[in-house]
Write a protein that binds this DNA or RNA. Structure first.
Lengths: 218, 218
DNA sequence: TCACATTGTGAACAACACTTCACAACCGGG
DNA sequence: CCCGGTTGTGAAGTGTTGTTCACAATGTGA
C-alpha cells in the first residue's frame, strides 16, 4: 500500500516549513518542493491526491501550474494559497480548477479545516458507485442509444418522431426499442406531453461522454 | 428547434431589467424571474444552458439555489452576481458550483465578457469526437472486461492466471475470451514475457471510468 | 523423464440484443 | 366521420456475444 501524502508547493521556505510542520503534527504524510517545475516532477513520482500550491512563485507561477495539474491529474485536489488576495484572483483560481483557496496570512486552523474538507471530498469520491454504472455503460454500448442521448442533449426535449427522423431511421419501432432501454436505466424520461428528455443522470452521462471524447482525441 | 435562452434571477427589479436589456441588446434571448423558487420553475420549463443568479434574495438565496441547480442541471453554466463581495464569498460560490462570479456594481462589458466566456465554454463542450469511442465503449459494456481493466490499472502488469484468480473466475478460457476482446480494441497489450498491461488508451479509459463513477455517485 | 501449472485454440451451445412485422390506440384536421 | 400521422405493444426471427468443454502447446520443477 502506497502511503497517501499531501504535496506542498511554496517558494517561501519559512512558510513552506511551517505548513509542513502543521500538517505533519496533524498526522499527515507530507512532501514539499519550492517550484512549480519540481512540483510536476513530484506529482509524477508520488501522485498525491491533495496539493497545496502557492500562487506567487518565481518561474512558473501557481496559476500557470494549476491547469497543468488539473489536466494530467484530474483526481488530485488543489488548494491555492495566496498573499494579496482579491475577489478576482480567487475567482480566477477557482475557475482554473482550484478546489479551495486560502488567503495569507491564515491561521493553523484555517489550513487544517481546508485540508480536512478536501480529504473528506476525496474520501467521498473514492467510494465508487460501480453498481449503478453497469446498466448505464451497457446502455452506452449501443451507437443508436448514444445518438439518441446526444440528440436529446442538444435539443433539450424531443418527441418520438423527431428523434426517429433526426437519426434517419426508417423503422420507428426500432427507435422505440432503444428508447425503452434508455428509460429503463433512467437515463431519459418522458413527460405528460410524451416529450422525451434527459434525466439528471442522463445529463451526467453526456457530460462524461464529452470528457471521454475530449480525452481520447487529445 | 427550441431557442437558446439565458435565465436572469434577481429580486431587484431595476437591476434585473437592466441586465435583461443589456443581454437583449447584445442579441441574446432572455428569460427572467425574481426569486429562486421561480427560477426552479423556469429551469423546468425552458432549461437554459446559462443562468445569472443574484446572491442576496428574499426567500431562498442564490447560494442555496446554486447546489440545487447544479444537481439537477449539471450542464447549465451559472454566473453568480453579488453585492458586498468578499474573497470568502466568491470562493464559497465557486466551490458550490458557480462557473463565474460578478461583483456589483459591474460594467456592461464585464457582464457581456462573462456571458460570452460561459457560452464559449458551452460551445466547446458540445463538440464531440464520437467515432473512436465506439469500440472502447462497446468493450466497457461488459463487467468482466471492466474488472480486468481496473485490476490492470491497480497492479500495472499481470500474467494470465493472476488476472483469472484475482477476478475469482474458475474457467480460464472465459478470461481469455475477454482478454482477446480487450486486445483487439487495443486497450491492453501483451509483451514477450506474456504479461498483460494497459495501453495508453486503456489508461485514459480507466481515468474516465473513475470520473464517471465520481460524477454519477455525486 | 514425468507431472503439473500456464497459456492458449476452436467448436458447440446458450443467452441475450437487436430487428422486423403485424397490429392497435389515440389525436387532429378536413 | 374518416384519414393519416403519432406513439406504442408483443411475438417471431436473426444475429451477436458470452460460456463451456475438450484438447493441445509450452514451460518448469522434481
Amino acid at each position: 500500500m502506497i502511503t497517501e501524502t499531501i504535496l506542498v508547493v511554496d517558494d517561501d521556505q519559512d512558510l513552506r516549513e511551517s505548513v509542513v510542520e502543521i500538517l505533519e503534527d496533524a498526522g499527515y504524510a507530507v512532501a514539499s518542493c519550492a517550484t512549480a517545475e519540481d512540483a510536476l516532477q513530484a506529482m509524477q513520482e508520488t501522485t498525491p491526491r491533495l496539493a497545496l500550491v502557492d500562487n506567487m512563485m518565481p518561474g512558473m507561477g501557481g496559476m500557470a501550474l494549476l491547469p497543468l495539474l488539473k489536466r494530467d491529474y484530474p483526481g488530485t485536489k488543489i488548494i491555492m494559497i495566496t498573499a494579496f488576495s482579491t475577489v478576482d484572483n480567487a475567482v480566477a483560481a477557482m475557475r482554473s480548477g482550484a478546489d479551495d483557496y486560502l488567503s495569507k496570512p491564515f491561521r493553523r486552523d484555517d489550513l487544517l479545516v481546508a485540508v480536512r474538507r478536501a480529504l473528506e471530498v476525496l474520501k467521498f469520491e473514492s467510494r465508487q458507485a460501480e453498481p449503478c454504472m453497469d446498466e448505464a455503460l451497457a446502455c452506452l454500448s449501443n451507437p443508436i442509444r448514444r445518438q439518441i442521448l446526444v440528440a436529446l442533449a442538444e435539443s433539450g426535449e424531443m418527441r418520438f418522431m423527431d428523434i426517429t427522423r433526426t437519426l434517419g431511421i426508417r423503422d420507428h419501432t426500432k427507435v422505440n426499442f432503444h428508447l425503452k432501454n434508455l428509460k429503463s436505466c433512467s437515463l431519459i424520461s418522458q413527460n405528460r406531453e410524451k416529450n422525451y428528455r434527459l434525466t439528471p443522470q442522463g445529463e451526467k452521462i453526456i457530460e462524461c461522454l464529452h470528457l471521454l471524447a475530449k480525452r481520447i482525441s487529445s
